[in-house]
Amino acid sequence: MRFLKLIIVLLFISVPLAASADKAKTIDDLAKMYDSSRCKDCHAEIYGQWEKSHHARPLMGVKGGLMLTPLAKKGETAFSPEDPKKATLKNFPCFKCHLPQAITSAEDSVAVELAEALIAGDKAKVGRLQITCIVCHSDKAIVHKRELGEPEKGVLYGAKNMDSHPDKIFTKVKKSAIMHDSIACGQCHGLGPNFEFDQAFQCANLYGSYLHNYISSGGTKSCQDCHMQKGDHLFALDWNDDKGASALLGKAISLEVETLGYEWLKKAKTYIPKVVVSTTITTTAGHRVPDG
């Protein structure tokens, strides 16, 4: 009987230990766990596009702005820890979209290291945390988990089935049900306030705007139709590219200006010279501009 009790106790202790042993304890661990650099051996063009994208720098803001820094500083936000050394994953609700692999695959020690790196302005360390190929093509590839199950280990999800995929870890590719649909992007690009947290907050609303303004107005294009033309993984627009961003905004947003000059008769014998400017701004985007 004593032996049986001992076995049960050991089981209770060892199961959580085994689970935590699989999780990343450091930023380097997490970066290695989700490292996609070997993808460029065969997908060089796509990898090159991704490297320049905001997905490759989800915690860096625009032009290295380290936008999560307030979350690491005591008292700056409702989520900030008392002390960066006491930070946990819960202090970074932004991980929901900016680093979803942290929620599933990181220990709280990663949050401590990130909080300290943010306060120290260590861009090299923060920059190691990326939304890599594995995040979208595995972790986020299935939204029908009750029917289709969790993403399988060793399987990537893409446009078509491949029984053999020349990679040491992801040896197979399965066709994703959603990879060409806006819902794949919508998982992270926002419906509105995030109510699942104990302190609601709101980031991007793009997917909400797409559903409730674009689709409801008869729009038929997907996010991928515009932002991933010919499979482009830059997911333009790139805010770090001033000229490119301006050019793309200029293409998507048109401005028409009409003017009229006349003398308005306000009252008898009182003419007021007046200039009237009429502007019309039209966007071809499938969501509000700007958003977030």
Binding site: K274, S278, T279, R288
Partner: peptide, 18 residues
């Protein structure tokens, strides 16, 4: 929300008295 919405042109009329 005053942003530009899909398929909804935003029109303004601005007047200047000279």
């Amino acid at each position: 929300d005053t942003s530009f919405q899909p398929m909804k042109p935003k029109k303004e009329t601005i007047e200047f008295d000279l």
